[in-house]
Amino acid sequence: MTLITSFAIYTGLAFFLAGSLWRVFQYSRMPVHLRWEIYPVPGEGAKRAAHGGSYFEDEDWWKTPRHAHPLNEIKAMLAEIFMLRGVWKLNRSLWWVSYPFHIGLYLLIAGCLFSASGIVFANYPFAPALFLATRVFAWAGLALTLGGSAGLLLRRIFDKQLRNYTAPSHLVNVGGFALSCSLILVGAISGTMPPLKDSVFGLLAMHSALRLPLILNLGLLLGSAMTGYIPFTHMAHFIAKYFTYHSVRWDDAQKSKSMEVHIAECLAYHPTWSALHIGQNGTKSWAEVATSSPIATERNQQ
């Protein structure tokens, strides 16, 4: 059974990595879009971003070199990622369940990294500290993820305004996290566990002699399945968010030479929109549609 669990962990991680890479590939290969930023844009610098201003506030903006402000961007990102600032400001009642869920997942990821590091650095004097950190982060992570996901599940079921926008899979998603955390917690508390170091090593090394409680195995199996499944759902918003913020919301970049080349390629596309005023006769490129007169095309086609 534990061997199956080991295999499931690696498979789940492989699916997670492959799915995440597929998402990144999918979005990064999209054609350049027209500018669609929303202010404040933290890349404008702390002073200007404080009131939501842009370079358009300078009359001669095109004569002035622009400076990037990556630190200000990072500050804004950290507040959003680790505090869920947007939800806190505008959806406080949801924040109380969404925040523990997200922080719980971060702690679980940290716990996994600590445990893997404990194996890698097993012969170093700080290895026990890594396993102690694993315990602290994993227990806290499991408790918070369980509380958060159970809260989200209840909100999805009983809150009318969320239920209208809830598909069956949404319940399975948060329910899956709640169940998996519950099983792991119950399994770890109630069953007889080998020492943590041996358990982690056994799972990572696919050690057939390792024996873990059945309930814990089930929890880990479900958790692995959830991990592999995340990138194929809307829960992959941790990837999407990079693009929505950096490629859309905060993207007020001027055209570069490479972007101009990319845009020229887009202008050569042949749209097939059918409305009369578009004037597509089957041969026009996007650029030709944009420079043609709808008056003439409507007259010709009538």
């Binding site: 879009h33 939800v87 969320l162 918003h237 999407a240």
Partner: peptide, 22 residues
């Protein structure tokens, strides 16, 4: 071909809104 102008932001919205209603 038809909507390069806004395809990326549109797809990101279609595929990742969590329905949190914020």
């Amino acid at each position: 071909e038809n909507n390069w102008t806004f395809l990326q932001p549109l797809l990101l919205t279609m595929e990742h809104c969590t329905g949190c209603q914020t």
